[in-house]
Write a protein that binds this DNA or RNA. Structure first.
Lengths: 243, 243
DNA sequence: CCGGTGCCTTGACGTTGATCATGATGGGCG
DNA sequence: CGCCCATCATGATCAACGTCAAGGCACCGG
């Protein structure tokens, strides 16, 4: 019985890089010990489901490395990507906090390492350390702001504008180079998932891409995109801003 | 110098009915004293603005009586009603928590009484009483769930289905009678505001109403609606559910 | 080398809802 | 009572998107 209890390398909450960027940075040594003892680490391959929409929510997931998408499906089978999650994020905390079943599915888009924390432990920590609750409060409030923004955009903006907006959001995280307005980025998603992010059909996404290329706003090749001028992209979102 | 310091009748946080249904129920006597001393009561007539989108957020508003709408506007002037608020709700707490300017406007739809609480006081209370933070956490998390649901619906459901859904939501609060599926309700909003709730134009709302009447799903007269069968309304939302 | 499979593109077509314009309705007020 | 104003209804038209169908292209296993 060696010290190796998980999948190859030892993971612990004390040295976890992701934790420091997460809500859990509020915890002290003793609380970290509790966290470390309670956590269950798991490695996921791309395309695996962490939890399904409708599943009972038994705790939260700490996202350590990789990339995951949050997908929401309605009764007719229409699905959209609510968003992407990154290392440091906590998954499934919303359902946990209100004590409901999961309102969305979480699936890995790249190989990922994710820790599970059972509800009892989280509840204990929340009760024990008020700062943790305030951290979550910040996170949820920020998310709510983003969601409300998205509601507005989804009913007022055209597909083209929403796509431009998505590219700008992705740019902040994935842009490789950038001088005087020019930039390139490597898309983290397939076209159909890009489409799902703004709630449109893959066919419509294809056409939107073609249009942007015809107008010289952005050029697509596989998953790489080249944008000659950010301002052109910005103008797609606020049509009448300065004429 | 009589005891009357506000607009006619004395308002205090100790006996406030709305507070008991709000996050503030977590406070103890001493904290209530602080709350009561800090609050600024104000009466609003219909159509008044409590705060504007883009205004700096200096605190939160406790909604005591009346009715208010939260409106969000984009750069092109398109506006939607994010939702309605009712006595017991706290207004502007999201912007306050993340320390941003207000992301939406709040305007009264009926005569209302609303207390203002400055940010410093709220911060003190939050720090002092962890339960208050957890109450807010609950509220925000619930709101976030609703917002995500709405994002999905706004891109997948037709106008007709979204309107049916809105009627069902309003039913829970405003339905006057109801036996075996039949019910009536008094709309709290004008048509153009109903339209704004689901992000469509007033003209489209008119046509949606006409259609529902032609199909015998609901009958409109001024602000009163009669629905002969709830199931018909439910079926509008999940088209292929049981055929 | 071949056939399969998943993802993407393209085209033709229908439907939905926005837009613009015009007229109806009804309530408040002089 | 009649006028004005806001709200609502209706019609005609158009652009945007979804839908259906077909075909290309890369990757994979046999």
């Amino acid at each position: 019985m060696a010290a190796c209890n998980t999948s190859s390398i030892r993971r612990d909450c004390f040295t976890c890089q992701s934790r420091e960027r997460a809500e859990w940075c509020a915890l002290n040594k003793e609380e970290l010990r509790l966290l470390d003892k309670a956590k269950v680490v798991r490695e996921y391959r791309p395309g695996e489901v962490i939890f399904h929409q409708g599943d009972p929510c038994r705790g939260v997931h700490c996202f350590e490395t990789g990339m995951v998408g949050l997908r929401k499906i309605d009764a007719d089978g229409n699905s959209i990507l609510l968003g992407l999650a990154y290392p440091g994020d906590t998954l499934g905390y919303r359902s946990f906090l209100v004590g409901e079943d999961h309102g969305a599915s979480a699936e890995t888009l790249k190989p990922s390492t994710i820790c599970f924390l059972d509800g009892a432990t989280v509840r204990t920590l929340l009760k024990h350390n008020p700062a943790l609750g305030l951290q979550f409060l910040q996170t949820v409030a920020r998310e709510l702001g983003a969601a409300e923004e998205r509601i507005l955009q989804s009913v007022t903006l055209s597909v083209r504008a929403r796509f431009a907006h998505l590219l700008l959001v992705l740019k902040d995280r994935y842009a490789t180079s950038g001088k005087d307005g020019r930039f390139e980025l490597e898309l983290p998603l397939a076209r159909q998932d890009l489409a799902a992010m703004i709630g449109i059909r893959p066919e419509t996404m294809s056409r939107a891409i073609k249009q942007l290329e015809e107008d010289g706003v952005a050029y697509f090749s596989g998953r790489s995109v080249a944008v000659p001028d950010v301002k052109r992209l910005l103008r797609e979102i606020e049509p009448e801003s300065y004429l």
